[in-house]
Structure formats: structure tokens, C-alpha cells
Computed example of a mutant assay.
Amino acid sequence: MMLNLPEKVTIIEVGPRDGLQNEKLFVPTEIKKQFIAGLRKAGLQEMELTSFVSPKWVPQMGDAAEIVADCLDQNSRDIVLAPNRKGIDRVYSTDCKAVAVFVGVSNSFNLKNINKTTHDSMAELKPIIKGLKERNYFVRACISTAFYCPYEGKINESDTISLCREFVAAGVDELSVADTIGMAAPNEAYSLFYQLKAEFTDTLLTAHFHDTRKLALANILTSLQAGIDRFDTSAGGLGGCPFAPGASGNAATEDVVYMLERMGIQTGVDLSRLMEAIDVVRPHLSRQIESGYYRLHAQTV
């Protein structure tokens, strides 16, 4: 049986930002820089570096300005998350040219996260996105709680698609559509991404799966069959969300790369160098790395 699969997949590494944001221990800034450098050596060409958010709410990102100043690479797409006007103004003071904004489909999640409804968040973001595009920035829209919400339960597909339409109309370059709490089933992943792929033919579409219930790889497989060839992953499976109770880490970059390469799909990622990058940050984490590929590697070196 032949599967409908791409020849190549782009991995967007979110470990330095989404992966570390929920860590209880502050990871030293120099270690973050070494981690980012190691990920580049592994061949990762697109990466979320950090967030311009309030250090009061996300202390781990308090060194964002230094990270951006020292870690940008002109040969890569380096993305900085900025949730509001204050964050965007900080981005404008740097040389970074790729910005991620985010909104939850769920009103309850949005209120817990940024104290605004989804509607109010979009009203604030639309002129920000317009300004970014006028300055030739790459704009990535992160769609949180696209499948399920920790407060509201199952999200209607139509609501997720409607929010994606608003972002595309506002001019974003990419939609990163997230299973924030890791509850999506493979058939749900296929259904949503099939519809998004059919409608948004001129927008980059990226799938972002958390592995809370160990369904991330299965969801990635069905998303591939729906035509998706871009995936957010986190080295070591790091991650979670401070405002989404029960959410565990992201799909582990090493597990995803291993699966794709075994299937004959090119990723451009060197697994041995990826392991070296994870080893840089591992001693500074508050939790064990549980990805299958890493555990096997650690036992055999």
C-alpha cells in the first residue's frame, strides 16, 4: 500500500522557546546559547529562539534580548514570540525579522493566558500584523487550543478554521496550528489539516502536537497524509504550557526525525548532533528526558 507522503519535511525547532518556557529551573543564558548553537549544527534551519514576554509571568524568558542579540543567524529563520504591542516594540529594537503572535481558539484559554477574549486579541493583533508586514517581517500565527481546551473541552473545527481565516486575511505568512493539551486523535488531526490545506493554498501550514497522551507521532503521520510537510517539534520533548494544566512536552524532535527518516522522508537533521545539543541543556532541566530515541541513545553511548 502506498501512503500519500512528501519527499521532504521541514522541522521548526521550538525547544529554546516553547520547550524551555515551562521549566521550573532557570536555564543559564550561556547554556541556552550553546543549546541553540548545537541545534543549528544539527541542521535545523527554522527555530523559535525566545519570547518577548513579561519576566514576571514567564521568568525563563527574562534574557530574551541577550539571546536575540547573540544568537541570530542570517542563514536561518529565527523566530521570536511577541504576544502584544509591548513585545513587538521590543522586537523592533532588534535585528530579528521573524515574529510569532498567538491566539487561542478558546475564549477561556485566552482569558487565562493573556486576559483577553479571542475576539479582543484579534482586534489588537490585526493592526500589529499590518505594521509588521509593512516592514517586511515574516509573521507566524500560533493557533492555540485548535482541537481541545483544558477549560472548554472539544473545540469545533469550524471555530478553528474561522480563526485561521482571520489571520490569513490579516496577512500572516504561516499558521502553526496546535494541539495544545495533546488530546487530538489521528482522525481529528487528519480532518482539520485536510480542510486547512485545501483552503489555504498560499499560506505555510505547520502542525504543532503535544505528546501528553503519546499520540503525537500518530497525529504527525495522519497530518502528513493530509498534505502537511511542516512540523513544530522540541528537542528532548521539552515543553508544556504555563496556562494549560495537564499539557506535557511537545513532540520530541529526535523521535519525529527518526520516524520520518525511517520512512524515507528527508529532514536535513543530523540525529547524532541533535543528541549532543540535548546533552548541553539536559543537566539544567527539572525533569527527565523521556523521548524514546534519546533514552535508547543514552543507554548505548
Results as ranks from 00 to 15, higher is better:
Met2Ser: 15
Leu5Gly: 07
Glu13Cys: 01
Gly19Cys: 06
Leu25Gly: 01
Leu25Thr: 11
Gln34Cys: 07
Phe35Arg: 06
Leu44Gly: 01
Glu48Phe: 03
Leu49Lys: 13
Val53His: 04
Val58Ser: 12
Pro59Val: 00
Met61Glu: 10
Ile67Lys: 13
Val68Asp: 01
Asp70Ser: 15
Ile79Phe: 05
Pro83Trp: 00
Phe102Trp: 05
Ser106Phe: 00
Ser108Trp: 00
Asn110Gln: 00
Lys112Ile: 00
Ala123Leu: 14
Lys126Asp: 11
Ala141Trp: 00
Ile143Ala: 00
Ile143Trp: 02
Ile143Gly: 00
Ile143Asn: 01
Tyr148Ser: 02
Pro150Ile: 05
Glu152Leu: 11
Glu152Arg: 12
Glu157His: 12
Cys164Asn: 05
Arg165Pro: 01
Val168Gln: 02
Ser176Asp: 03
Pro186Tyr: 15
Leu192Lys: 12
Gln195Thr: 06
Glu199Cys: 10
Leu204Glu: 15
Ala207Ile: 03
Ser223Gly: 07
Ala226Glu: 02
Phe231Gly: 07
Ala235Gly: 14
Ala235Ser: 15
Leu238Phe: 03
Gly239Arg: 07
Pro242Gly: 00
Pro245Leu: 03
Ala247Arg: 07
Ser248Asn: 12
Ala251Trp: 09
Ala251Gly: 10
Leu260Thr: 05
Leu271Ala: 08
Arg273His: 11
Ala277His: 03
Ile278Phe: 11
Tyr293Cys: 05
Leu296His: 11
Val301Asn: 08
